[in-house]
């Protein structure tokens, strides 16, 4: 009896010892020397591995930071200035703060505003729809409603509203990583300054058709009438290819354009109630 126990303990213990030695030797032999700052920087990163910074993941970002020794062109949109200041202090460089951004859906072609002209019966994917044809409505520019942005978002911040068929951004969850912008084949989504108190003014349309055609397809289309361009006191609005665009760096949120727009294509969100049609569900 005792012998059996003894042998078992000896054999198993010996085996464990031998393997431990092998592991130790191998681990030492193949040790990879790494800058310890990579681990430190990785630990302050959000760890979402979303790729919003343009690198393969948080570790790749940390490696790139340490390797180059500066933060030129490197910014973690998820962590924002808070995380980046930690990264900067670890690298011993000064951070240039960036204004927080948010994804904005520039289309309001809901079922009521933009009636469908046919029924799509394929896989629900914007890329498939856009490679196949112009979409279910008369507007070939706007949101296709396939939900590629929703699937691309790692933070659950953008969701298709079943009623309107359009994506809606949860501005508190959105980290402005830009995944939805890349996923959208129609370039409907844009990263814009989050704005003071989250207040933003933007043109919620991407239709570049001439006024009459655009209006025929969608009740709230930008018709390129240039009224907003004329009324803007800051020169923030330009109209190109029948489409108005507000430069968020120049816009001072006076909202004159919102009142001027004949098709309600310009949206002002998170302002105190003044504009009757604004509602950011």
């Amino acid at each position: 009896m005792t012998a059996a126990f003894l042998y078992t303990i000896l054999v198993l213990g010996g085996l464990g010892l031998v393997l431990a030695i092998v592991l130790f030797v191998v681990a030492n032999k193949f040790k990879v020397e790494e800058d310890p700052r990579i681990d430190i920087i990785e630990s302050v990163m959000p760890g979402a591995n979303c790729g919003g910074c343009g690198f393969a993941g948080c570790r790749a970002f940390a490696e790139a930071c340490v390797k180059s020794g500066n933060l030129d062109g490197k910014f973690c949109p998820v962590g924002g200035n808070a995380v980046m200041s930690k990264v900067a202090s670890n690298l011993g460089v000064v951070l240039q703060e960036k204004a927080p951004m948010v994804a904005v859906v520039r289309c309001h072609g809901t079922c009521d505003n933009r009636p469908t002209t046919n029924i799509y019966n394929g896989s629900p994917s914007c890329r498939i729809i856009s490679s196949l044809y112009s979409g279910e409505t008369g507007c070939k520019w706007g949101c296709l409603g396939g939900g590629d942005c929703e699937r691309a978002c790692k933070f659950g911040a953008i969701k298709i509203n079943k009623r309107s068929g359009l994506p809606e951004v949860d501005q508190d969850k959105c980290t402005a990583c830009g995944a939805c912008v890349k996923a959208c084949p129609k370039s409907v989504i844009e990263l814009r300054n989050k704005g003071p108190k989250n207040r933003r003014v933007f043109v919620s349309c991407v239709n570049q058709e001439k006024g009459a055609t655009a209006r025929k397809a969608c009740a709230v289309a930008c018709i390129g009438c240039r009224k907003c361009e004329k009324v803007c006191p800051f020169g923030a609005i330009t109209v190109q290819n029948n489409l108005s665009y507000i430069d968020f760096n120049k816009c001072r949120l006076c909202r004159k354009c919102v009142d001027e727009c004949p098709t309600n294509a310009i949206w002002a969100v998170n302002f105190p109630v003044k504009v009757p049609q604004q509602n950011n569900e």
Binding site: T116, T117, N118, I119, Y120, N121, G122, S123, I128, L132, Y133, E136
Partner: peptide, 8 residues
């Protein structure tokens, strides 16, 4: 009437 559209 509205036509159906789908990939082949």
């Amino acid at each position: 009437r509205k036509l159906l559209v789908s990939p082949a």
